[in-house]
């Protein structure tokens, strides 16, 4: 494995008793990329992350981070990693400032000026006790402690949980800066648009198995959308049949609904012949993507 592979899991498998956790997960995360780990809740994202961090031990398979085996060198790996838990639990009886200082001390000291800058960017109320903080404010503290020691690798489990849109934006900016500095980010999410916005590559996990690893461009070219087009007058259905990538066409009076895979170009051009009043686009759920896109090869959906 070359130096630029930061995380490498090899047939990583974890069973909990009879229950399946993850099965044969092979992931390679390269230096300097933002890698999204996408899947519905309960698919095994957190299990994968907790195995990489050596909180839980794989039933089979292995993982290296920075070319170090996670079982043998977890302390060294933790030194170089910033981690945000999915279900964030902080020491409630501390203030944010005390917490960050304590964690900083465990890491042998911090650039406190940088921490202050980060806190200002995320509008963190550091002198307040964590107990009284809202979910979003706790999440910001969680992000701060993950980023504050400028780690080479960030492992973030559902990082935007509870963040308002403004803070999400700030977080995306921080991700970009981190990436530009040549550091690596592995983040999990169950929200497709978020992953599309910030990631270079995406691994999709479903029921414990990684079903695809794609670049964002590929993912987008396969992206599916439910569209609803309102016309000024009744439109003939024939004009829309046999358009590439358009399926499930249904016309009721002056409203057309359909599913589009990939480019919208053909549909938009066909619609332009008529007077368009409104276009409504529904983001597909992850489950829709799995059902439509990944089963396509098997049974040629419609």
């Amino acid at each position: 494995m070359n130096n630029d592979t930061i995380i490498n899991t090899v047939k990583l498998t974890k069973y909990y008793g009879k229950q399946k956790g993850i099965e044969e997960v092979d992931l390679q995360v390269q230096r300097g990329e933002v890698f999204g780990y996408l899947g519905p809740n309960g698919a095994g994202k957190t299990t994968t992350i907790r195995t990489i961090l050596d909180f839980i031990r794989p039933t089979r398979g292995s993982t290296t981070v920075f070319d170090l085996d996670t079982r043998q060198h977890s302390v060294e790996i933790h030194r170089r990693v910033g981690y945000l838990n999915g279900e964030l639990a902080l020491y409630n009886d501390m203030t944010g400032e005390d917490l960050l200082k304590y964690l900083g001390n465990l890491r042998g000291g911090l650039d406190w000026k940088y921490v202050k800058d980060l806190a200002a960017r995320f509008q963190c109320d550091l002198p307040r006790r964590i107990q009284g903080l809202s979910l979003g404010n706790k999440q910001k503290l969680g992000l701060l402690q993950a980023f504050m020691h400028k780690p080479e690798l960030l492992i973030l489990d559902e990082p935007t949980n509870g963040l308002d849109p403004l803070m999400q934006h700030e977080f995306y900016d921080l991700l970009n800066e981190t990436k530009k500095a040549g550091r690596t980010i592995f983040l999990s999410s169950h929200v497709l648009p978020e992953v599309e916005k910030v990631c270079d590559r995406v691994g999709i996990i479903r029921q414990g198995k990684v079903v695809a690893v794609e670049t964002i461009e590929t993912l987008k070219s396969h992206s599916i959308r439910q569209l609803e087009i309102h016309f000024a007058r009744v439109v003939p259905k024939e004009k829309f049949s046999n358009l590439p990538g358009v399926r499930d066409i249904n016309v009721q009076n002056n409203i057309l609904t359909c599913t589009v895979v990939g480019s919208l170009d053909a549909l938009v051009k066909a619609s332009a012949q008529f007077e368009v009043v409104n276009i409504i686009s529904h983001e597909p759920s992850l489950e829709d993507i799995f059902m439509t896109y990944y089963n396509e090869g098997k049974n040629n959906v419609k």
Partner: peptide, 11 residues
């Protein structure tokens, strides 16, 4: 849940 949080540090 605070133990997992602690163990992510180099301890």
């Amino acid at each position: 849940g605070t133990l997992g949080f602690l163990l992510a540090n180099p301890v």
